[in-house]
Computed example of a mutant assay.
Amino acid sequence: MSFSIVTWNINSVRLRMPLVEKFLLEKAPDVLCLQETKCPDDLFPAKAFRKLGYEHIAIHGQKGYHGVATVARRPIEMVEKRRFCEIEDSRHLSVRFEAGGKQILLHNFYVPAGGDEPDPEINPKFRHKLDFVAEMNAVRADHDEGSASILVGDLNIAPLEHDVWSHKQLLKVVSHTPVETENFEAMRKAGDWVDLMRLNVPHEQKIYTWWSYRAKDWETSDRGRRLDHIWSSQNLVPSFSGYEILREARGWDRPSDHVPVVARFDLG
């Protein structure tokens, strides 16, 4: 049995619903995880998703800011909407679903961006980001013979040298500073998570999922970063059949600055 999961920071689900519809009609994933929906729960466009066959919906929304949502063509069970750093921001939800005889726990995250100044002493947004990642150490890749875990989302950190267009030039830029990347990788390893996007990709190969709105010609300059991630528990690695970054979505009309990332699994 095969299934696919997508992560996509949509940067306002209501504003970009036509793009979401286009994507779902073309790719038809089993599960779609959205971040930065910027929409309270009562205004989430559930009717539009159900019309497209995504009848199972879990949302953790917030007016004008943040927000995550997981929609699916298969039944999902809401597990948790976790609060981080004692702040009521809507940045996480987890659901459980069945696939290939396994109960899969799926985390959907939107990690704080952290502002522009990479100094936690003078920038409370950066302090919040570091504290948030530290608390994510408690999110583990739980698994056994009948269960597995997946974690996806806009994690707002490009951890590896070739996850950014210029390692040297971005070392003092928020999302790729050493304090972020080191803590991020330590957190991933502490939870026993596998970085699926780097699993069979040469270390020196560039991977981007985000291109800034500030670039006049994003495609030509190609100054991207890998801010969106797909992780799993160890026992899903044999069934992981690959991923696709839908780069062309960055060139769609009124796009998000992030593009969808599709992960596929074959549980046999």
Rank of each mutant, 00 (worst) to 15 (best):
S166I: 04
S166H: 06
H167W: 08
H167T: 10
H167Q: 11
H167V: 02
K168S: 06
K168G: 05
K168V: 11
Q169S: 11
Q169F: 05
Q169E: 15
L170G: 00
L170A: 02
L170K: 04
L170Y: 01
L171F: 04
L171T: 14
K172D: 06
K172T: 05
K172H: 11
V173I: 10
V173L: 08
V173E: 08
V173R: 12
V173N: 07
V174Y: 03
V174D: 02
V174N: 05
S175W: 04
S175M: 06
H176A: 00
H176K: 00
H176T: 02
H176G: 00
T177H: 03
T177I: 00
T177Y: 04
T177R: 00
P178R: 00
P178Q: 00
P178W: 00
V179S: 09
V179W: 03
E180H: 01
E180V: 01
T181A: 02
T181V: 04
T181I: 03
E182M: 12
E182V: 14
E182Q: 15
N183E: 08
N183W: 05
N183P: 03
F184V: 06
F184K: 08
E185H: 09
E185C: 13
A186P: 02
A186Q: 12
A186V: 14
M187T: 13
M187R: 08
M187Q: 08
R188S: 01
R188N: 02
R188T: 05
R188A: 06
R188M: 12
R188Q: 04
K189Q: 13
K189D: 12
K189W: 08
A190I: 11
G191A: 12
G191V: 11
G191T: 15
G191K: 10
G191F: 10
D192E: 12
D192W: 07
D192P: 08
W193D: 08
W193Q: 04
W193S: 03
V194L: 15
V194N: 10
V194G: 10
V194I: 15
D195A: 08
D195I: 07
D195N: 11
D195R: 03
L196R: 02
M197A: 07
M197W: 01
M197F: 05
M197E: 12
R198G: 14
R198P: 14
R198M: 15
L199S: 12
L199R: 14
L199I: 08
L199T: 11
N200S: 13
N200H: 15
N200K: 14
N200Y: 15
V201S: 06
V201I: 12
V201C: 09
V201F: 02
P202Y: 00
P202Q: 04
P202A: 03
P202D: 02
P202H: 01
H203M: 06
H203I: 07
H203W: 10
H203L: 11
H203R: 12
H203C: 06
E204V: 12
E204A: 15
E204P: 09
Q205W: 06
Q205G: 02
Q205E: 14
Q205N: 09
K206Y: 13
K206W: 07
K206Q: 12
K206G: 10
K206I: 05
I207D: 09
Y208I: 05
